[in-house]
Amino acid sequence: MVMPYVLVIIVFVVFLLISNIVMSFTNSKGELTLENYISIFKDNVFYKTILNTSIWVFGSVSGQILLGLCVALLLNQITRGQIFFRSVILILPWATLDIVAGVMWKWMYNDMYGVLNDILVKMGLFKDYIPWLATPKMAMLAVIIANIWKGFCLSGMFFLAGIQTIPQELYEAAEIDGANAFGRFWNVTIPQLKPVLTTTLMLTVIWTINYFPLIYVMTGGGPNYGTETIVTYIYRLSFRFLEYNKAAALSNVLFLLVFTIAYLFTRKMAREVAA
């Protein structure tokens, strides 16, 4: 009964992985070579994309986790209309198509018609419209904000599920011991949530590294190389420049990176369970 699954895995995972590895070590004539890897490490854009990916992942993940946690705590307090609030707040951004979300945020940031600028100016926070996507730093901030909106729901949903499994007695015991609301949060909720936190952190980190449509739609990796991450660069190499071998090599570098992150997280989790 295991055979079909093994076959599917071999066809769709192992075969593709191996063909990608073979491709990364050959040149366009089919000869074995290391030049794809050498050209990546000689390429200045590669180091720029590593830096950008780090900023993108750090900003997006910390924002998503924090916002997700806040929303989960708040939603946990609501007793009436649970289903309505949960579906609106948690499902809506998550269920929006990537491309739709990208186009929507691009229009919201627009500096001639954008609704965001309009609101900020009417609130008196800014004197004039600001061109959100016009400089590399602002563009990075803008895509991170959009990605936090797009992704906080998933961590929120995990956290909400985690919070609801915490036994009520723990809070009661803490209250008897004289812990205030913050103390209860810090000493009961957070330690109890830790396994969920670690898993969520690992998943969001990996997803954010590999997440591509939002940046592609909003900035296309620009201005200059301001928002070019490793994945947008791989896309550009293979689909714009048709440099399949170099793109394959870069994909393998990315695969190793993601694999290492996943390995470190799982090892940490396994140790915690053992302890």
Partner: peptide, 22 residues
């Protein structure tokens, strides 16, 4: 020429760097 997409990207970056005052 086959390298045109890469050449074109260099022109785009050239214009952007000037526009951004880099």
């Amino acid at each position: 020429i086959p390298q045109y997409p890469q050449v074109s990207e260099q022109i785009q970056i050239m214009v952007q760097r000037v526009l951004l005052n880099e």
